[in-house]
């Protein structure tokens, strides 16, 4: 077995470069005006990339889930009822807002509330970084927790 070319300092350097690139991308993407083709591409690109990586992961086992490998037992959910309760409250509030036209002065939808926070570029940037982190977290977690003999680049 050959030693991994990705170890120690080189892995750390790659991580720093990647983090800087993602930060730069997020700053650029949140500076593009809404309702333009450029912003649709800027927001869509990370989603398409994650979709491709997710599909590749399940086909060739990048995250330790190759079809030929034994399926990992999914983690059991323990008492998810509070999340269901919060979700139902959010759906009820959003439904009421949408029923009143979406931009109602009485019951604003979640996106109308968030619009107030999006006025500043810095806040948009931070929210965008949070959105990226939330979306990529399951994939990165799956790669990190994959057994070393399944799908890892050795």
């Amino acid at each position: 077995m050959r030693p991994s070319p990705w170890s120690g300092a080189s892995l750390r350097s790659a991580g720093i470069v990647l983090a800087a690139a993602v930060t730069g991308y997020a700053w650029w993407a949140t500076g593009v005006p809404p309702f333009t083709v450029r912003v649709y591409v800027a927001v869509g690109a990370p989603a398409i990339l994650l979709l491709v990586m997710g599909v590749l992961d399940s086909v060739i086992g990048v995250g330790g889930m190759a079809p030929s490998a034994p399926q990992q037992e999914p983690p059991h959910l323990r008492r998810p009822l509070p999340w269901v309760f919060l979700l139902l409250l959010a759906v009820g509030l959003e439904g009421a807002g949408l029923a009143l036209g979406g931009h109602s002065g009485a019951i604003p939808t979640l996106s109308t509330v968030i619009d107030h926070a999006l006025a500043g570029h810095a806040v948009r940037f931070m929210l965008f970084c949070g959105w990226l982190a939330a979306g990529w977290a399951p994939f990165l977690r799956a790669i990190r927790t994959a057994p070393p003999d399944q799908g890892r680049v050795a």
């Binding site: 809404p34 649709y40 800027a42 869509g44 997710g54 399940s58 619009d115 959105w131 399951p138 799956a142």
Partner: peptide, 29 residues
């Protein structure tokens, strides 16, 4: 999220919901 991610249909649903949120919030505000 980790549980949904373990199966391909769950992955597709997670990515679709996440992409919709990003599109709605950051591209159409």
């Amino acid at each position: 999220g980790a549980r949904l991610w373990t199966r391909p249909p769950g992955r597709i649903v997670l990515i679709a919901v996440w992409a919709f949120v990003g599109w709605h919030v950051f591209a159409r505000y």
